[in-house]
Write a protein that binds this DNA or RNA. Structure first.
Lengths: 146, 146
DNA sequence: ATAGGTGCAAAAGATTTGCAACTGG
DNA sequence: CCAGTTGCAAATCTTTTGCACCTAT
């Protein structure tokens, strides 16, 4: 059930919201089970995970094409898989330069998408973000970025 | 006091450990105050922040040369500022391609440093990581990476 | 019957905050 | 005397876990 919603969603979503969606569909499932399912999917590398600005974890089913990095709109919350060839290479190079092995990287790209730029809120096209066009920008704990 | 320890440390450190260090030096300060100080430094863009594999936040005083990205050893915890020109450019390009504005990015590079590769643990040269050479690798919640 | 999944409530843990006491100017 | 800090304890919030129950094999 978790997988199904994730697949339908095609966007990052929190465990709690996911649970809400499930319950809203009359599916009987507990929050614990949702967390357990997500953890499985995570260890199976079937989902990508990013952190909310409040530390909450957001999950997204990894696209079949293997993309692992996304461009996320801070306003509506929608995400787009992006090509990360360059970063992969950069990461490898940097690691090699420093004599590192077993390198892993985490990359999060956020911004304001085209739809959210002119007016203030729209982008209700997808269903995973009840709080679409209204998200606390830089609530308190912003990740470092530049 | 917080600043001083951070400066001396030159590495990522958690609020709690930082507090321990302070207390260990007979400096009278509460954990709350440490958190408050770190938050200030954070909003002042004086520190960079990364997330532990358990969700804990680690802070590091941003080097004067303005580096914002680091290569962190998963074994001993030491970190090295890295050149991120390429990623910056990549980020800008990707964002532009998608019509995004106000782009921000977060990049975390982890691996096993040279010192930690042959044997298992060493690298006790710096003082911020009491738990050096022994860190739960991929405890449970691994960030997505590739 | 039996292994594994599930729900519930409690636990864990990091961070924040209300509030009263305190300090330097 | 006051503004701004601090400490402490309590609250918050997400995620995990213990444990009993229940179900499909």
């Amino acid at each position: 059930m978790v997988l199904e919603v994730l697949a339908r969603c095609q966007d990052f979503i929190s465990a709690q919201r996911l649970h809400s969606l499930l319950v809203a569909e009359d599916l009987r499932i507990s929050l614990s089970t949702v967390y357990r399912a997500l953890r499985e999917l995570e260890t199976a590398d079937s989902v990508d995970v990013v952190r909310d600005d409040v530390g909450e974890r957001l999950y997204r089913l990894r696209p079949e094409d293997g993309h692992r990095h996304y461009l996320i709109c801070r306003s509506c919350g929608r995400s787009w898989p992006v090509d990360s060839e360059d970063v992969e290479q950069w990461a490898e190079r940097i690691a090699a330069d420093h004599g590192f092995a077993a390198v892993e990287h985490t990359v999060e790209l956020t911004g304001v998408c085209g739809d959210c730029q002119p007016a203030s809120d729209e982008g209700e096209s997808l269903s995973c973000h009840p709080d679409s066009g209204r998200r606390t920008p830089a609530h308190r704990a912003r990740s470092y970025a530049s």
